[in-house]
Simulated assay, not measured.
Amino acid sequence: MSSSPAPSPTDCLANIRVVLSHTSHPGNIGSTARAMKNMGLTRLYLVNPKEFPSEVATSLASSADDVLDNAIVVDSIEKALEGTSIQVAMTARRRELTLPLQTPRKLVPELIAEAQSGTEIALVFGTEMSGLTMDEVRQCNRMVTIPTNPDYSSLNLSQAVQVLTYELRATLLDDVSYLEEKRHYASHEYIELFFKHLEETLITIGFLRPHAPKRLMPRLRRLFLRTHLEQEEVDILRGICRAAVEFERKPLPPGKTDA
């Protein structure tokens, strides 16, 4: 009986949608789709885009065509937010509202916790020139801003999407053990057998004098134990020991001496 695949830390991203309101240039829609797919998000909502579908959008999506093909086009922000419990307004200025303005890094842990519990979340972005309207912002219950250089704060729409979606994915994958190949560390007994093998080898090749060992073996133990050896690495080291002993015992060719 086949077992179901283990859940991925990024599965909760399926509960997060990106909403673009009144996008004027189709290239920004395509670039947004590319940014989303890079970070594992696939649900795109478009509120009254000026031009969509578009060959320009498809070209700039750069193989994120599936995100564009499944994009949902609606005629109001209310429809784009249907079914969501958290709506995050992306804004470049503080506005006259009581909601606190947060950075992506500060807000993202809350968004992830909510998404993991099944909450539907919308990340809402406005037009390229003026951003979200006050009415659109009022329909959101979170506000986020990207802390750009105050002397030059201009961000492309897709860049803003990329920053926020990157923070989501990076926070989810902070546990690097998910990214790394599973390591099989050698057991205590396995390493002790290696140290015994190593000591015998060093004696055989004349590197270690058994009656005057000084501190060679303790130093070698400390050296190897610092590396947290994997089982395969111990096998390689023992293979080197065997090869060294075999080389030491190999008879010399006729006519050759070891002098």
Results as ranks from 00 to 15, higher is better:
residue 90 M to R: 00
residue 80 A to M: 08
residue 93 R to F: 07
residue 69 D to I: 09
residue 56 V to A: 04
residue 47 V to S: 06
residue 87 Q to V: 04
residue 64 A to Y: 00
residue 100 P to A: 14
residue 84 T to S: 03
residue 44 L to V: 14
residue 37 K to I: 06
residue 70 N to A: 14
residue 101 L to M: 11
residue 64 A to K: 07
residue 105 R to K: 12
residue 75 D to T: 05
residue 110 E to V: 08
residue 95 R to P: 14
residue 34 R to W: 12
residue 49 P to H: 01
residue 77 I to G: 01
residue 81 L to Q: 08
residue 58 T to D: 13
residue 46 L to E: 00
residue 67 V to A: 06
residue 87 Q to P: 08
residue 84 T to I: 10
residue 84 T to M: 04
residue 69 D to A: 15
residue 32 T to C: 14
residue 72 I to K: 05
residue 40 G to N: 05
residue 71 A to T: 05
residue 33 A to H: 02
residue 74 V to R: 00
residue 91 T to Y: 06
residue 28 N to K: 05
residue 85 S to P: 08
residue 62 S to I: 13
residue 43 R to D: 14
residue 101 L to N: 08
residue 87 Q to N: 13
residue 90 M to I: 02
residue 84 T to A: 08
residue 79 K to W: 15
residue 53 P to Q: 03
residue 49 P to R: 02
residue 51 E to W: 00
residue 103 T to P: 10
residue 29 I to K: 00
residue 43 R to C: 08
residue 99 L to E: 09
residue 92 A to S: 11
residue 46 L to M: 05
residue 55 E to M: 11
residue 48 N to T: 05
residue 87 Q to H: 09
residue 98 T to N: 11
residue 98 T to F: 11
residue 108 V to K: 01
residue 56 V to D: 04
residue 39 M to N: 09
residue 70 N to L: 13
residue 28 N to E: 14
residue 92 A to P: 03
residue 65 D to G: 07
residue 88 V to Q: 02
